[in-house]
Design a protein around this nucleic acid. Structure first.
Length: 490
RNA sequence: GAGCCAUUAGCUCAGUCGGUAGAGCACCUGACUUUUAAUCAGGGUGUCGAUGGUUCGAGUCCAUCAUGGCUCACCA
């Protein structure tokens, strides 16, 4: 017992006392007729739940105000909190003794009658109650709740019990994700599942996690994207597919990055990046309208207007606007390097015009893009899976969507020329061999698929977690991931 | 990976100049049958993140480590 705190010891003693009284502290299910919110919402209203109505509910005890031979308490169930009132005169001496053995945090079932107290609070007068679960540890404080972020993430269940707003965010997340699926399904897209373990980690520029398969005696990578498998399905004639699920990138952790995160990738044959742009803005606006009942949300005390159409700006225009550099006037790598240095970028020796354009954009433009904005036409060097523009072979039909300074979507007209794709991969491999761990690997099997012919296709990826952050006004990605990646304690 | 900050009771937090560890909530004892941050009277429940060091003496100063947060780097 020495390892237990005083409060834990007392709770264990109460547990033993319950058993002495013939009460099992971990009881069976309780048949409930109502949730707290039902009662609060429907009491009195058109006689739906009249005064004296009998209700059965179950919940966790979160406050107790004992007054000798009677007690007020609040219980919390899935729907919310409601006050209960237990009187010795109503339940009897023995039952009241059992009631007094309850602690904050215990789960009970009860049956009683709804009434309104003198002060007007809708309350259930307990007639029958049963302890269902004894909590052996005290809950965090009722007043400040749990604020230690370390504990909130590690013991999310406590966070959910004592901080009701946290639960709201995750309910919203669930609804938003469901609505994304509804939207896509209604548009005729087919949800598919592709492998999470890849022999080649492709479809994005990122370092993968490595795992090992014993029987095959080979290393496998956790997927960093779903792209290459979904495009194989397009080759196979599944013309409208999407996958919504977890991907894994072995990168740093920050308020905007978690090693595992959720993306939805969407591919449509006989579509291009313009179609994907329409899809992006329409999907996000529609989902917000459906779930939040609005297309303007507040993020970080600023209003975000999601109503389509979102402004489109080519990358070159955006750089011209925010950095006052005109890449249309820059044709050589040398010129680009000079101006990039002049603007304060750390320029690598072999940096190309396209790479520097992208760097300048990321460094100086991204943070300005608060309202939803499409940045269109990306340099070919940073877009190895996107189709080359016919009127400018150094650029691709690609866009990214930005909101609140964060990238939330990435899309292109998919590269379907197998010869070009192989060359692009080979350039990536060269970068890789030069030490760029994030450069892509050559996926022969994918090129093989392209050689059989992939129809003209538009593809789109949306970062679900970031989108949820914006739509729930959450400052950190950890606020929208139930169990964010943490170092184990000790 | 780098810099800054934090770590004290179950929770939220004070702790001065280095001198025997504090508050609120929670908990315990007693009173109280419509309270609601219930109230009233009493009670402090602790490996001060860990390990070393300086010192007569360390929650406090120094070093290292651990975990977390923020900023940056990388990335989406």
């Amino acid at each position: 017992m020495e390892n237990y705190s005083e409060q834990e010891i007392i709770r264990r003693q109460k547990l033993a006392r319950l058993r002495e009284l013939g009460v099992e502290p971990y009881g069976e299910k309780y048949d409930v007729t109502h949730y707290a919110a039902d009662i609060l919402g429907r009491f009195d209203s058109s006689e739906d739940i009249p005064e004296g109505q009998q209700v059965a509910l179950s919940g966790r005890l979160i406050t107790v105000r004992a007054h000798g031979k009677a007690s007020f308490a609040n219980i919390q169930d899935e729907s919310g909190r409601i006050q209960i009132y237990a009187r010795q005169d109503d339940i009897g001496e023995r039952e009241y003794e059992i009631f007094e053995l309850l602690d904050i945090g215990d789960i009970i079932g009860l049956t009683g009658e709804v009434f309104r107290t003198r002060r007007g609070e809708i309350t259930v007068a307990v007639k029958i109650f049963r302890p269902l679960v004894k909590a052996l540890r005290p809950l965090p404080e009722k007043w400040h709740g749990l604020t230690n972020v370390d504990l909130r993430y590690r013991q999310r269940y406590l966070d959910l019990i004592v901080n009701p707003d946290v639960k709201k965010v995750f309910i919203l997340r669930s609804k938003l994700v469901q609505e994304i699926r509804n939207y896509l399904n209604n548009q005729g897209f087919l949800e598919v599942e592709t492998p999470m373990m890849h022999s080649i980690a492709g479809g994005a520029s990122a370092r993968p996690f490595i795992t090992h398969h014993n029987t095959l005696d080979m290393n496998l990578y956790l997927r960093i994207a779903t792209e290459l498998h979904l495009k194989r399905l397009i080759v196979g004639g599944m013309d409208k597919v999407y996958e919504l699920g977890r991907i894994f990138r072995n990168e740093g952790i920050s308020t905007k990055h978690n090693p595992e995160f959720t993306s939805v990738e969407i591919y449509q044959a006989q579509a291009d990046y313009q179609d994907m742009m329409h899809l992006t803005e329409d999907l996000i606006a529609a989902v917000a309208q459906k779930v939040l009942n609005t297309q303007t949300v507040t993020y970080m005390e600023q209003e975000l207007n999601l109503t389509p159409p979102w402004p489109r700006l080519t990358m070159i225009e955006a750089i011209r606007k925010y950095v006052n550099v005109d890449f249309d006037e820059i044709s050589t790598n040398q010129e680009a390097q000079d101006i990039a240095r002049q603007k304060g970028l750390d320029v690598k020796k072999n940096a190309t015009r396209g790479e520097l354009m992208n760097e300048m954009f990321e460094e100086y433009v991204e943070k300005h893009l608060f309202q939803p904005t499409f940045i269109v036409d990306y340099p070919i060097e940073v877009s190895p899976l996107a189709k080359r523009k016919t009127d400018d072979l150094t650029m691709t039909y690609r866009f990214e969507a930005f909101m609140a300074g964060s990238e939330i979507a990435n899309a292109f007209t998919e590269l379907n020329d197998p010869v070009d794709q192989r060359e692009r991969f080979e350039q990536q491999v060269a970068k890789r061999e030069a030490g760029d761990e994030e450069a892509q690997m050559l996926d022969e099997d994918f090129v093989l698929a392209l050689e059989y012919g992939m129809p003209p296709t538009g593809g789109l990826g949306i970062g679900i977690d970031r989108l949820i952050m914006m739509l729930t006004d959450s400052p950190s990605i950890r606020d929208v991931i139930l169990f964010p990646t943490m170092r184990p304690r000790e």
